[in-house]
Design a binder for these strands. Structure first.
Lengths: 146, 146
DNA sequence: ATATATTTAATCGTTCACGATGCAAATATA
DNA sequence: TATATTTGCATCGTGAACGATTAAATATAT
C-alpha cells in the first residue's frame, strides 16, 4: 500500500539524517572546548593528515563544494587556525595550510575519538556494532556521489 | 596510535553525515518537482499520517526543536501547504494543519519512496542491504536523543 | 489563592549546505 | 596562435540546524 511507504517509520533516509545529526550533537562538548564546529573539525582532520592542500583537495575529500568550503575556511582563517594563499604553480588554486595554532589543536583533538567511543559504549553501542554499518555507508557514498 | 584515530577514514560519524547528505541530494529531483525541501517533506509525512498536530508533536517526531521547525512551518504556510493556528485547549500550542493543497501533494509523493528504492537498486544497493543498517541507526538515535 | 516551576513557541544570531552564477587562469582544440 | 572549453574558486541568495534567550500559558506546590 502506498500509504505505508510514506510513513516516517519506513524512511531509511530519515534514520540516516537523524542519526548523523544526533551524533554530531554528541560531539558538541568537545568541539565547544576547541571553539570549532563539526565541519571545521573535518577540515582539520584532512589537514592534520596532510598539510598545505589546495581547496579542491579538501573539497573532494569531504564531498563538499567550494560554496560551502570557501566561507568555512575563511572563518578558520579569521580564527588563525589556517592560512589561505594563492598557489604559484596554478594561480587558480587557493592553498590552505595550518597555522602553528591549527597544528597544536591536534593534540587536544586526539582524545575526541576515544571519548566518543567511550560515550557510545557507555550507552550500550559497542564499536563492533557500529563498525558493521560502515561498509554499507561507504557503498552508499560511493554510488550516490556524482 | 592516536594519529590513526584522527584519520578521516576512521570516522564513522563522517560516513553517516556524508551518506545522509548524499541521500538527501539524491531525493532532490523529486522535491524540486513538488517545490519543497527534504525537511518540509518530513513534516508533510508526519501530517499525512496524522493531520492537525501541535508543533511540539511534529518536533518530537522529527527530533527537531521549535527554533528549526517554527520558521520551516511558516515557510510552508506562506506556500499554502499548511495552516497555523493557536489551540483553544492550550493557548501556548500552535496547531499545524494541512491545506487542501498540502493534502493533495500526498498523491504526487506516493511515487517517491519507490523511485528512490529503484534508484538505489539500479546503482547496486538493494533494499535488503540497506535494511540491515536500520536497527543500528535506530539504536543510535535512541541512545543519543537526550 | 498565590508564588514557583514547567511547558510551548517564537526570536535572534551564527554557521552550514547548496543551487546558480560569475570570473579568471589554465588547458584543449581549431 | 586564436578560440573554445574546462577547472578552481568565489559570490549570492535561500533554507535548514542549533545555541541562547524570551514571553506567555499552564501546571504545581505552598
Amino acid at each position: 500500500m502506498s500509504d505505508e511507504k510514506l510513513k516516517l517509520s519506513n524512511q531509511g533516509c530519515f534514520r540516516l539524517y537523524t542519526a548523523a545529526r544526533l551524533m554530531i550533537q554528541a560531539y558538541q562538548p568537545w568541539f565547544a572546548q576547541l571553539g570549532i564546529t563539526y565541519t571545521q573539525y573535518l577540515v582539520l582532520m584532512v589537514l592534520w593528515e596532510q598539510d598545505c592542500l589546495p581547496l579542491n583537495a579538501i573539497s573532494r575529500r569531504l564531498f563538499l563544494e567550494s560554496n560551502t568550503i570557501t566561507p568555512l575556511i575563511k572563518r578558520m582563517e579569521a580564527m588563525k587556525i589556517v592560512t589561505r594563499k594563492k598557489s604559484k604553480d596554478d594561480a587558480r588554486q587557493t592553498i590552505v595550510a595550518l597555522t602553528e595554532h591549527g597544528r597544536a589543536m591536534k593534540q587536544q583533538a586526539t582524545a575526541i575519538p576515544d571519548c566518543m567511543s567511550a560515550l557510545l559504549q557507555e550507552k550500550g553501542l559497542d564499536g563492533e556494532t557500529f563498525a558493521t554499518i560502515i561498509p554499507t555507508l561507504d557503498y552508499m557514498i560511493e554510488i550516490l556521489f556524482k
